[in-house]
Amino acid sequence: MPKTQTKSTKPEGITVKPGSSKEYKTGSWRSKKPIFKHDKCNDCRICVMVCPDGVIFGEDKKYWADMDFCKGCGICAEECPVKDIDMELEVR
């Protein structure tokens, strides 16, 4: 360590942890929310694929969105081939 320095000058604040954006909740952006009706779902998993934020989870015809992050874009509902997802107004 340089003699004249008392504190470290090592690189800091240069890199961040992978995947740490999970600490940043985007759910509050939402004005509409997806409702997974778990009725006609045929397990195609298209909703899981097309969510830009990657926040749809589940299996065996039971899918759900992580509402901490869902931005309410409505792509999942639009792309669901059996219309098993509805978009509803978000009331807070």
Binding site: P2, Q5, T9, E12, G13
Partner: peptide
């Protein structure tokens, strides 16, 4: 702060 740390580091290079 990022620029401050850069300035501190380059100053600290003098004895180095």
């Amino acid at each position: 702060e990022s620029r401050y740390r850069l300035e501190e580091a380059i100053k600290a290079s003098k004895p180095v």
